[in-house]
């Protein structure tokens, strides 16, 4: 990317906008929504490693997300320090991811999806039913956010910047991952698993490592989530959360670096706007899923562009060009 290219300019402008966001937004409510978008974007990026690059669709990520949140929350409640709680949370999430990976990678395709779904639901069941440990439906409260380099994160803008730093690290690590030989081999296992195997690659190990990377960032985002809300309950680990994150990934476009980020912004903003007016977020979420699959199977961003072009053609010319019909699948 050269310094004069439009992509570089767009990147520079977005970084500048993100860095100065608290100054031009002002209202803490909106700064908080920006923080939410950023940590959900981290989960979406993490899931995209599996969905987009490894071709493995997981519906169990809410379980991993909650694992990190609950481990940190319970340890903090037991009186441990932030550092101990955070490290333990990441270690616990990585171990859980490894178990998930070992079991679910017995299979690929639908089998993988079903197993991750079942495992995620079991973690939800533990959080919900093992009340003596997790306090059941009442959830876990934590009283304080950590201090970082002497800055107290209790304030909305301070928390935003902390989230932004984590988000930045996640994006950089994803960019490195995508360009690295390892990233190429992960894509290889997605497109030509047998050929990769014949070339001497250990397909299983590559997928396993991809799962761990995905689990790691999901855990980090889970920590941000629990610090942001200072509360976690089994509801976070329900299938609905996994589905929402999957929606973020596919709505932005799978297998792209910025797609999940855009998707996270769309879903979080939509959820906040819809919830402000009606109670039926689940209904809206379901309708969005059905509509995306039926009308824009390639993702919201490219799909909207295609429908827009199609509508524009219809307006400007009598005969729409054959390539722009809505029935034309981009895949």
């Amino acid at each position: 990317m050269s310094l004069r290219s439009p992509r570089f300019a767009a990147l520079a402008i977005s970084i500048l906008l993100l860095l100065t966001l608290p100054a031009w937004v002002g209202n803490p409510y909106y700064i908080n929504i920006a923080s939410q978008i950023l940590f959900w974007a981290v989960v979406a990026l993490a899931l995209n490693v599996l969905v987009g690059y490894a071709g493995l669709v997981s519906l169990g990520h809410a379980g991993l997300f909650g694992m990190a949140g609950y481990t940190a929350g319970l340890l903090l409640q037991a009186g441990h320090g932030h550092l101990v709680a955070d490290i333990a949370a990441i270690v616990a999430t990585l171990l859980t991811s490894a178990i998930f990976a070992i079991l679910s990678l017995r299979s690929t395709g639908i089998g993988f999806l079903m197993i991750t779904l079942a495992l995620g639901q079991i973690l939800w069941g533990i959080a919900y039913r093992w009340a003596s440990l997790t306090n059941g439906d009442n959830g876990v409260n934590i009283t304080t956010r950590p201090e970082f380099l002497g800055i107290n994160l209790a304030n909305a803008s301070a928390f935003y910047y902390a989230t932004l730093v984590v988000f930045g690290l996640a994006v950089i690590s994803m960019a490195v991952f995508v360009r690295s030989p390892f990233g190429a081999s992960v894509r290889g296992t997605r497109d030509q698993a047998r050929r990769m195997n014949a070339l001497g690659y250990n397909v299983w190990l590559i997928r396993f490592m991809a799962f761990l990377i995905s689990g790691f960032w999901t855990g980090v985002a889970g920590l941000l989530f629990v610090y942001y809300n200072q509360f976690i309950s089994p509801q976070v680990m329900a299938l609905q959360t996994s589905a929402e994150v999957l929606l973020m990934v596919i709505s932005g476009g799978t297998g792209t670096l910025l797609g999940p980020v855009v998707g996270a912004a769309i879903v979080v903003i939509m959820k906040n706007v819809v919830s402000a007016y009606i109670e039926r977020w689940n209904l809206v979420l379901g309708v969005i899923f059905v509509a995306i699959i039926s009308f824009m199977p390639e993702g919201l961003v490219p799909g909207t562009a295609r429908l827009w072009r199609y509508g524009w053609h219809r307006l400007t010319s009598r005969k729409p060009s054959a390539g722009d019909k809505p029935g034309d699948r981009a895949q």
């Binding site: 639908i110 209904l283 059905v290 699959i293």
Partner: peptide
């Protein structure tokens, strides 16, 4: 497979919310 999963998942959310309603 993936579109089928998402479609049925979407319908399950719609049905759950309509039942609640």
């Amino acid at each position: 497979e993936l579109p089928q999963v998402l479609l049925t998942l979407g319908f399950s959310f719609i049905i759950a919310d309509l039942c609640l309603l």
